[in-house]
Nucleic acid binder design. Structure first.
Lengths: 359, 359
DNA sequence: TTGAAAGCGCTAACAC
DNA sequence: GTGTTAGCGCTTTCAA
């Protein structure tokens, strides 16, 4: 828009100083381009580029001249230009439904660390489960703003599968369907949920409630099935009134769900919540209706966010290897980018039951 | 580093198709550029560009032709090229010390929402308080990868002030020095801390502990001064043993600090922690040494993250308008980008004491 | 080992 | 209203 004048002007300035010898000392920043550095160093732009990119075939003396000029001018490569030329943005998109959820935060850290190790930056997008936003993020890929994407948002994934996005360079993390033809990393949700329920069973509970998210999501269905089958295997017929499906993982959602669940005859004596945030809310909700945990009601969560160990009582939960989940997702994506043809495998990471005070 | 080979191949492919005449019908995606669309629509690239950018001076019929061609080809603008041409990346960098901290997460949401409203995307960077990473992020600005930055990391800010970064387009959020010549948004930390202490005083406490972060940080010094002055004003001589400085805001840090604090004669009867995460850890730590909150020890936190209301006992805390903090920071930055010369003001947002069960 | 020059795909003068 | 064309700043042939 209003850019041409200033930039042009400064370019002119540097062009207007063919003064040999002493560097004109025009401080750092702005106007300086690779051409200016070349001029100051008395070499061609090609040579400057070679030095900047660490190519071997440059005479040490030449290299030093260039480096000196770069130093003196405070030049920084314009990655906008570099990106166009090399046709890559070196940006990885990460889509999460909610940055505020500690579970996602830790995964995001894992992604970020691997990405940075490989010279990529991470563009974090909070979809807020908003379909409009969700769709537009995949477009970032098509518009070359990002080289690849990692999606953690179940809703987005459901939607992506329905569209033509399978050709795009992305991987699924935590929420996935092995049949979907997109690389993924996650855990065995079915077994994990079963492990949680079996723990409760072993503690003598027979009436076990399930506070789940929307069964539109794969992971929710998998965990529900794990819950159901574990109950059946113990000879218990699951009561439908013990189950609730929420469209949020917020603390508040868990709190009110717990209150609702307790407000019925034959209320459960234990609750399995599919997320620690939900479970923490559940404990709060239970307390608000006068129930003590674990004495009156046992609670098991899912994820093992760092907070789980801090609350009262400390939360018994299924630990997911969050950091590794993120790191693996990033590696899978990088692999796919490096070799678009090779088919990248799906990977399942181990989970683990962590027994603390709540159940 | 290893980025040359693959790219070369694809460039060659598209370059090898100067075939004139009938559009090769090469479906959607890949190779398609604005020139291809122009050809299919039978117009010039300039016209396509005009349509794409919503310029008015295009005949409806022409516009339709172009749109049809865009549709048929599945063309998406290459923003790499656009960015170079317009000399802006439309990316805003946000630097936080820790994405996992719910306090920052909420602010980040505020930034993201304003950014997106204005056609920018947010590049989130977790500095992890690592000086190396910190420094490299400001370089993103110099390399034109981001148009501007919002910094939430105290350590990074301290360092940025020492360097020549004041010329860069960035704003400070939460941590700031009015004298630093960089736009900022935050709260009145001095008064806020005073309010917390006065609340405790009003509840009859005389021995009030302070669990603070590193006094290298401006906000930490401001809150400490607020604490000290409030105590003095009440005729109390602050005991140095009541104060602790931590280099982390993690739950664990708060927990162990609390244990340490209690492990001395004349231990405080109340604790003011400068962050809710710390305060939650404190409550946990207190419990682990057999102290009950608030009966034995009162606890006041700072921030009012959503979790504060959920724990047992619910946390009394100083609420910061997190969402607004983020939104304001983004607006300040956008303002600065729109008009680099105008001097953007510093803004202070109101805080508020939220009284719950812990004190 | 170095330089000249051809673009990457787009926008915006400037003509017509 | 529409087309022609000149770059944006960089990387990478290709030739010397």
């Amino acid at each position: 828009m209003s850019r041409s004048s200033s930039r042009k002007a400064s370019a002119a300035v540097s062009a207007a100083r063919p003064r040999p010898g002493v560097a004109p000392l025009r401080g750092a920043a702005e106007g300086m381009s690779i051409a200016g550095v070349a001029e100051q160093a008395g070499v061609s732009v090609a040579t400057v580029s070679r030095v900047l990119n660490g190519h071997e075939n440059v005479r040490p003396a030449t290299r030093d001249k260039v480096l000196a000029a770069v130093d003196a001018s405070g030049y920084r490569v314009n990655e906008l230009a570099r990106n166009l030329r090399t046709a890559e943005s070196r940006l990885l998109l990460t889509m999460v439904p909610d940055v505020g959820n500690p579970f996602y935060a830790e995964i995001v850290r894992g992604i970020d660390s691997v990405a940075r190790q490989h010279g990529y930056f991470m563009l974090l997008c909070d979809t807020g489960a908003d379909p409009g936003r969700e769709r537009s993020y995949f477009d970032l890929l098509r518009r070359r703003r990002a080289d690849g994407a990692i999606c953690l948002d179940p809703a987005t994934i459901q939607q992506a599968l329905g569209e033509t996005s399978s050709a795009l360079p992305w991987v699924a993390c935590c929420e996935f369907d092995p049949a979907m033809g997109v690389p993924y990393v996650g855990i065995d949700n079915y077994r994990a949920a079963g492990d949680a329920v079996r723990h409760l069973l072993a503690r003598g509970h027979r009436r076990i409630g399930l506070i789940n998210s929307d069964v539109d999501y794969l992971y929710a269905r998998q965990r529900q099935q794990g819950y159901l089958d574990a109950l059946s295997a113990a000879g218990i017929t699951p009561d439908e009134r013990w189950r609730m499906n929420l469209n949020s993982l917020d603390y508040e959602a868990g709190a009110s769900a717990a209150a609702t669940l307790m407000n019925q005859p034959q209320a459960p004596s234990a609750i399995f919540a599919v997320s620690d945030t939900l479970a923490i809310g559940v404990i709060h909700g239970l307390r608000s209706v006068g129930k003590r945990v674990p004495d009156d009601i046992a609670v098991v969560g899912f994820d093992d966010i760092s907070l789980a160990a801090q609350i009262d009582p400390p939360l018994t939960t299924i630990a997911q290897p969050m950091r590794e989940l993120g790191e693996t997702a990033a590696r899978l994506l990088l692999q796919r980018l490096a070799n678009p043809l090779a088919n990248v495998p799906g990977v399942l990471l181990p989970h683990r039951l962590v027994i603390r005070g709540s159940a």
